[in-house]
Design a protein around this nucleic acid. Structure first.
Length: 262
DNA sequence: ATGCCTTATTTCATAAGA
């Protein structure tokens, strides 16, 4: 079984690249984030033409997550109970989480809030959201031996996960409270799968569009695959597909691809 | 060993991304 995650940064803008990538890599399940489209405007037909079904959770302009599968869907879930809202409880939750089960493997696709500035309202929301996600995963995990929590976490777990730690001092993505939230998730009994980089030593998954960051190696590892032990022990390969970050009209994130023994 | 921001929108400017 091949499972992948990819922050596509707009499924509308990325559709040609997405369809090309699905046809080339043929994952069984792809978790997508930042689809940036409402559920009723998703380009379902284009994805179906290459053999995939889609379930999405979408707001419209921002956020949006989905699961793209060629092995069906079971037990679909959009969002989660007591999901924090922003800026107030008067608004619905943002579309940041969707889950389904594929041949017995439970997969969550999540897009963790960015956080913007440390100690901002957005940062507090990010930590609240991570805390609520942790409680949800904790409650679901006992029901599934094979479990994958994947997506764009907007957290670099260690200093090795950013191209230059000195650049990120006092920035979001690397602060201790964010890293502690990551460790609490992993502490539920998950393994942060070590994807290999196709070039160099750092399996970065994101490179800013600006300043030639990609070709200078100025990246971050913020797209993660957290897996239960039953999944982790079945891994035969895991890699960051930096090829998808090259060429015309790429996302600023690269996919992470994980292969599992049957 | 690859190309120097990109996206959607209440569009010709803005907010957001990380």
């Amino acid at each position: 079984m091949r499972i992948a995650t990819w922050n596509v940064n707009s499924v509308g803008a990325r559709l040609p690249r997405l369809v090309e990538w699905l046809s080339l890599v043929r994952p069984d399940v792809l978790a997508v984030q930042e689809t940036k489209c409402a559920a009723d405007s998703f380009p379902y037909d284009a994805v179906r033409e290459v053999g995939y079904d889609v379930e999405v959770h979408g707001d419209g302009r921002w956020n949006g997550v989905g699961l793209i599968s060629r092995v069906g869907f079971d037990d679909l879930r959009r969002g989660f109970d007591a999901e924090p809202r922003f800026p107030t409880d008067d608004v619905p939750p943002e579309a940041r989480a969707i889950a389904a089960t594929f041949n017995g493997v439970r997969v969550w696709s999540v897009y963790v809030p960015n956080g913007r500035e440390v100690d901002s309202d957005h940062y507090a929301y990010k930590l609240r959201w991570l805390d609520a996600l942790t409680r949800t995963i904790e409650s679901e995990l006992p029901a599934y031996e094979k479990f994958v929590l994947t997506g764009d976490f907007n957290i670099a777990p260690t200093d090795a996960d950013v191209w230059d730690p000195s650049v990120f001092v006092a920035s979001t993505h690397v602060t201790e409270p964010e890293r502690a939230a990551y460790r609490r998730l992993v502490g539920l009994g998950l393994v942060d799968l070590e994807a290999r980089a196709l070039k160099g030593d750092h399996p970065f998954t994101y490179w800013d569009y600006r300043a030639g960051s990609f070709h200078k190696g100025m990246g971050m590892r913020i797209d993660l695959v957290l897996a239960s032990k039953a999944v982790a022990t079945a891994v035969t390969d895991a890699y960051v597909d930096r090829e998808a970050r090259k060429g015309k009209g790429p996302s600023d994130h690269a996919p992470v691809v994980v292969d599992l023994k049957d």
